[in-house]
């Protein structure tokens, strides 16, 4: 196995393109190294992106943020303004693992690992985040919900790397929230995740995005759930409609982590609770 640590995104993409065997981008390694140790994969090439300066920074303000792909969770948590404007995205990133894992894990690694239960993905989708994708020859920008195509698979081509995540312009009176259900209090994997991002005007929800994790092969953007609360003051009836829409959107599996019935029910519960928190963060009063 070869290990490379290039200084530019372009060089990283070129290395990936040239490798004939199995090549992987190495960000925090908290998924990749675990899988290598378990003998689940044996890469021929690892391209470490942590030496690429551009990927190590968070830049921006209310007109939009760019979060580098190699920024670890702990730096996302410590950023001065990011958490004020995007508390839901930050709390999702901060939920990953433990202190040790936070020092390494990245939101892009979380996305590209393509687990249906990844915590930051619903929050990023609800936020309307975009991924900047760099290939050997071209760059493109894609909505986050277009990256993951199924458990363990993405729409990225062999040489493509995500360089950064872009969060859109933040309107005033906006708020987001992410909640997950785990049987323990930490060090666990989401049985259901729900993210809500919304903007209010005089208490009325003008726009909203609702996303769910761990209830289908990929994280879901649930338009019906957003429609259920847009135009409302998040009264009980609209919350119930949102919960019903969340449950209806679920297409989960029965497995060791939860039953279909359980996930479907709890998706509604968490959707409702996340919406309530986001609404309050946006300045709404119920």
């Amino acid at each position: 196995m070869r290990y490379e640590a290039p200084n530019t995104t372009k060089a990283a993409a070129t290395l990936l393109a040239a490798e004939k065997g199995k090549a992987f981008v190495l960000a925090g390694g908290t998924d990749l190294l675990v899988r290598m140790k378990a003998g689940m994969l044996e890469p021929d090439l690892l391209v470490d992106i942590k030496q690429i300066d551009k990927m190590r920074t968070i830049a921006g303000n209310s007109t939009g943020f760019t979060i580098g792909a190699a920024v670890p969770g702990v730096e996302i948590g410590e950023h001065k303004t990011l958490g004020k404007l995007w508390p839901g995205v930050v709390e999702a990133a901060q939920l990953i693992g433990s202190d040790q894992v936070q020092g390494r894990c990245t939101i892009v690694g979380n996305l590209c690992n393509a687990s249906p239960a990844a915590d930051t993905v619903p929050a990023l989708i609800a936020a309307g985040a975009k991924a900047v994708v760099v290939g050997k020859d071209k760059r493109r920008t894609m909505a986050v919900e277009k990256i993951v195509t199924g458990p363990g698979s993405t729409s990225l081509t062999k040489s493509e790397i995500i360089e950064s995540i872009k969060l859109p312009k933040r309107d005033r009176n906006s708020g987001d929230a992410y909640l997950r259900f785990i049987p323990r209090t930490e060090m666990d994997i989401a049985v259901v995740g729900a993210a809500v991002n919304l903007t209010v005007s005089r208490g009325v929800i003008k726009s909203a995005r609702v996303a769910l994790g761990a209830v289908a092969p990929t994280a879901l953007l649930v338009k019906e759930a957003a429609d259920a609360i847009i135009g409302s003051k998040l009264d009980d009836a609209s919350l119930e409609r949102l919960a019903a829409a969340c449950s209806a959107a679920c297409n989960p599996i029965d497995d060791k982590r939860g039953t279909i019935h359980y996930r479907t029910k709890v998706a509604g519960v968490l959707g409702r609770r996340a919406a309530t928190i986001a609404y309050e963060r946006a300045g709404g009063k119920r």
Binding site: R184, E186, D188, K256
Partner: peptide, 16 residues
């Protein structure tokens, strides 16, 4: 056995 590991065989962590 579906859960031969500490991720899905859930012993309590401190905060539990």
């Amino acid at each position: 056995l579906q859960n031969p590991g500490f991720l899905d065989y859930r012993i309590p962590v401190c905060s539990d």
